[in-house]
Design a protein around this nucleic acid. Structure first.
Lengths: 331, 331
DNA sequence: TCTCATAATGAATACGTTCTCATTTTTTCG
DNA sequence: CGAAAAAATGAGAACGTATTCATTATGAGA
């Protein structure tokens, strides 16, 4: 049905080869010829077939974005959304299209990888593991890790200073005089969890306090769970005066718990979050939080992946984007 | 580098055709043969090449999801995120992969549609227009509209009862005795905007009130703008006692404005939102809002598109999913 | 005008599958 | 057991493009 290069060729009288060149590398064909070819193409409503093109070039100009975050049923959560936006922009600018999928889709029942030859490279976001990376590498698929860190030879990881960010949050609370600080720790990838937990402990210790288990709760990053856990920390006469939550959704849960218990924020209870996602400005007062440079993360990951696809060697193993404390009304 | 069907063929002694069948339609090959072929494939780490496959079948098993919402810089906003999730699930279950893009990506500089032959069909979300649909149709591309309505021959639109939803919200406020009701109307597609605006006017009129321009503000669906507009409505002695916001982000802006002005929710000012996005439960008190069945929207759009791809004729032009009022603390 | 270099074009092949049609093997059943 | 039917397999074309290599047209310099 659709016109092919042959139809155009016949209509304008030039060979298939020349027509092909007119589209794929216009500078190699005489201007006058090119015009005639484009004219013919237009009347036939012809566009080069991307599949046939990919077939012979061995490249599709498609990139995959795959999110592994088991705890979130929603593929696109407030943290990844801006990252994704940035990845999409970068890819578009450089002529690539973007595939997206959750982890379920990567492997088909028969063990095939549906990704094969469909994609020129893959961005793995969240907590993927060595096995997944190895699977992809065995197929010579360029890979970049996003918001995760795995120590594998030549594997590029784009992440942030998790420990430093945690420190920023804790030092801010300590500076304001808080000593009884609760930790609401979300269940993320080990890399993320461990770094932020360590920052919590180190900061307290440095300030002469002892981290106490009764002030610490592990929670799923879901508002309801966070509310429950926060209520425990806020109950009793020995309650905490501040809470460090390891992401904004959890922090908002903590604030909601406080409001429901009649506590004033920040006078009675201060809350610091992490990520600076959209949510952080939805609540009132707005949330003090650790801002992660999500736009850069996405851009860098995409750019490095594309460099790799286009033949350059990865120059560094790990790239850390900056973190910054944004102080708002909750502290 | 990567193994092809020919390598497998040589290793196991069967012809290319049989190897191909072993993967594409296993029931057509003897079990014993199949096992040997799989074995050989495994040792060679072979997987059928999706591109070559697409080339000969004329199908890619890829679907595109394209969002047109100019006012939102973020491709994936809280409204579309669950819809997208649902689309992704449905596609995955039925063996399709998902491409995503904003409108910028659809057309390349030279006027080509990069979509051509890469995709088996497209879901157009947000306010796309006739021109776009026609472009795609000229290439025989199956199309489904999501959250929008265009009167075009045989075009399937999956939407919701915008007017009915608006009515639910307004009648709820009227029942609670409110008469001075403000409208914060987000700038969405004409279809959406007009329906909700009409519901606002009709409900008021039916209750014997006259819609007044001073109670109505058009706003971009961004929290800051909503806060400003809400403050205008809440100022002065003649202020409104309730606000109907045409989406949750705007409603949250209204609530934040009220809180900042020292008004109590819902005693001094009631707020109803629209969409029931995640945000609606982030604020305290939580937001009364019109729930849109986003999961169904996504599922239905994907299913109908796939039916169309697989050869069935669309049965209805417009499908409306249900709306429902969720009453929470803000009213 | 002629020669040589260079630019522009064409013919043919390759990319890795699926599918049709023909052929061979296996099964069924009288 | 033998013939017919059914199942399994193989040979080869086709999908629509990019690219290599050969050929032809164009232009520059003397």
């Amino acid at each position: 049905m659709a016109a092919t290069i042959l139809d155009v060729s016949k209509l304008c009288g030039y060979s298939k080869a020349t027509v092909s060149r007119a589209f794929a590398s216009p500078e190699k064909v005489k201007e006058k010829t090119r015009e005639k070819i484009y004219q013919a193409a237009q009347t036939l409503n012809y566009t080069p077939d991307a599949i046939a093109r990919a077939m012979v070039r061995g490249r599709t100009d498609n990139i995959g974005f795959i999110i592994y975050e088991k705890q979130y049923p929603v593929v696109l959560n407030p943290f990844y959304s801006p990252i994704f936006e940035s990845v999409l922009q970068t890819c578009t600018r450089r002529g690539y299209s973007l595939f997206i999928s959750s982890d379920r889709e990567l492997r088909l029942p028969n063990g095939q990888t549906c990704v094969k030859k469909q994609l020129d490279g893959v961005i793995l976001a969240g907590h993927s593991d060595e096995r997944i990376v190895n699977d992809l590498r065995r197929q010579n698929m360029p890979v970049v890790l996003l918001n995760n860190r795995l120590d594998m030879e030549g594997l590029l990881c784009v992440t942030t200073d998790q420990y430093g960010g945690g420190m920023l949050a804790m030092e801010h609370l300590l500076e304001r005089g808080h000593r009884k600080i609760g930790l609401l720790a979300g269940e993320f990838s080990p890399h993320v969890y461990n770094s932020r937990y360590k920052a919590y402990c180190d900061a307290l210790t440095k300030a002469g306090c002892l981290p106490e288990d009764r002030y610490i709760r592990r929670v799923e990053p879901v508002t309801e769970h966070a509310i429950e856990a926060a209520m425990e920390l806020l109950n009793g006469k020995d309650r905490v005066t501040a809470i460090f939550a390891t992401n904004d959704t959890i922090a908002i849960g903590a604030m909601k718990a406080a409001i429901r218990m009649g506590l004033r924020i920040p006078q009675d209870i201060a809350v610091v979050g992490y990520d600076d996602s959209e949510n952080s400005r939805m609540i009132e007062p707005e949330l003090t939080t650790v801002r992660v440079d999500k736009a850069s993360m996405g851009r860098i990951a995409a750019e490095r992946l594309i460099s790799q696809i286009e033949g350059e060697e990865p120059c560094r193993d790990t790239i850390q984007t900056s973190v910054e404390l944004v102080i708002r009304g909750s502290t």
